[in-house]
C-alpha cells in the first residue's frame, strides 16, 4: 500500500518536472526569437539616425568620396513605383476579391482562389524575371513603369484574398436587408457591404503597399536604378531598396552609412503608410459585433 503511494508520488513528481521543463522551454523559445528583432531594430535606428538629416530627403546622391548628399531621387522613385503598383494592384485585387466573395462559390471561383494563393507564393524575384521579358524587352528599356508593374503584380494576391475574406465576414443579414429594400445587388455590394468591410480591406491594401515598398528583388532588372533625378515612367528610376542593396555591397564607408539611413527611412515610410491608413479608415461609427 505504502509502496504504491510512493510510486504514484514519484510519478506525479516526474509529471510536474516535465511540465515545468517544457513550459520553460516554450518561454525560452519566445525569448530567443525576440532577440534578433531587437538587434535589427537597434542597429537600424542607431546606425541610421546618425546620418539622418534634412539633406537626405532633398539632396541627390554624392559621388564616392564626397560626404553628405541624400536620396531624394530614390524616395521619389519608390513613391512613384508604389503609385503605379497601387493603381494596378488595388483595382484588380479588389475587383477579383469582390467577385470571389459575391459570385465565386463555383468552380471558377475556387480555381481563381487557388491561383491567387499560388501567385502569393511566387518569389518576387520570379515576378521580376517575368516583367523583364514582358515589359523591359519589348520597351527595350528598364523603366519605372516596369518596376511599378512588378510591384502591382506582387500586391494583387494579398489584396484579393483580404477583400474576399473581409467581405465574407460581413453578416448575410445586412445583404438581405439591403436587397429587401429593393437595392440592386451591385449597389448593395458597393455601398453597404464594401463600406462595412472597408476597414479590413484597407488593412490588406496597406499590408500589400508596405510589402511592395520593401521589395528589392523585382526591381533589380525592371526599374534598375538611377543615380540621377528622374520622374519619367519610361526611364530607369531609383528606389530606396535598390540603393540599400548597392550601398551595402559597396566598399565605401560613406555609402554603407547611407545604406543604414536609407533602411531607417524605408522603415519609417512603411510605418507612416500604416499610420495613414489607420487614420483614414477610422470609421464614423464603431461597429458593434
Amino acid at each position: 500500500m505504502e509502496n504504491g503511494a510512493m510510486k504514484s508520488n514519484l510519478y506525479l513528481y516526474k509529471k510536474k518536472i516535465i511540465n515545468l521543463i517544457m513550459l520553460s522551454l516554450s518561454v525560452l523559445a519566445a525569448v530567443i526569437s525576440i532577440i534578433p528583432l531587437i538587434f535589427i531594430i537597434y542597429y537600424t535606428v542607431s546606425k541610421g539616425i546618425s546620418h539622418l538629416n534634412i539633406d537626405f530627403f532633398i539632396e541627390m546622391p554624392k559621388p564616392v568620396g564626397e560626404p553628405g548628399g541624400g536620396m531624394a531621387n530614390a524616395i521619389v522613385g519608390t513613391l512613384i513605383m508604389l503609385g503605379i503598383g497601387g493603381s494596378i494592384g488595388i483595382p484588380v485585387g479588389m475587383s477579383a476579391g469582390i467577385y470571389l466573395s459575391e459570385f465565386g462559390k463555383n468552380k471558377f471561383g475556387n480555381v481563381v482562389r487557388f491561383f491567387a494563393d499560388v501567385l502569393s507564393g511566387v518569389p518576387s524575384i520570379v515576378v521580376g524575371v517575368v516583367v523583364y521579358s514582358l515589359v523591359v524587352i519589348p520597351m527595350k528599356q528598364f523603366s519605372a513603369l516596369a518596376g511599378g508593374i512588378a510591384l502591382g503584380i506582387i500586391m494583387i494576391p494579398t489584396i484579393t484574398r483580404t477583400t474576399d475574406e473581409m467581405i465574407k465576414i460581413v453578416p448575410q443579414s445586412l445583404r438581405e436587408t439591403a436587397l429587401s429594400l429593393g437595392i440592386p445587388k451591385w449597389k448593395t455590394t458597393v455601398s453597404i457591404v464594401l463600406k462595412t468591410a472597408w476597414k479590413g480591406i484597407a488593412t490588406g491594401i496597406l499590408l500589400a503597399l508596405s510589402r511592395a515598398a520593401g521589395e528589392t528583388a523585382p526591381l533589380l532588372f525592371t526599374a534598375l536604378g538611377n543615380r540621377f533625378w528622374s520622374t519619367s515612367i519610361g526611364q530607369p528610376i531609383a528606389s530606396l531598396t535598390v540603393y540599400i542593396y548597392d550601398y551595402a555591397k559597396a566598399p565605401f564607408e560613406d555609402w554603407n552609412n547611407q545604406a543604414w539611413t536609407a533602411a531607417l527611412v524605408l522603415i519609417i515610410l512603411i510605418s507612416i503608410l500604416s499610420l495613414l491608413f489607420k487614420i483614414i479608415t477610422r470609421s464614423r461609427y464603431n461597429i458593434k459585433q
Binding site: S173, L174, E176, T177, A178
Partner: peptide, 9 residues
C-alpha cells in the same frame, strides 16, 4: 427581419 438590423455604418 427577426433581428433588428440597422446598417451599422
Amino acid at each position: 427581419f427577426q433581428k433588428p438590423n440597422p446598417f451599422p455604418t
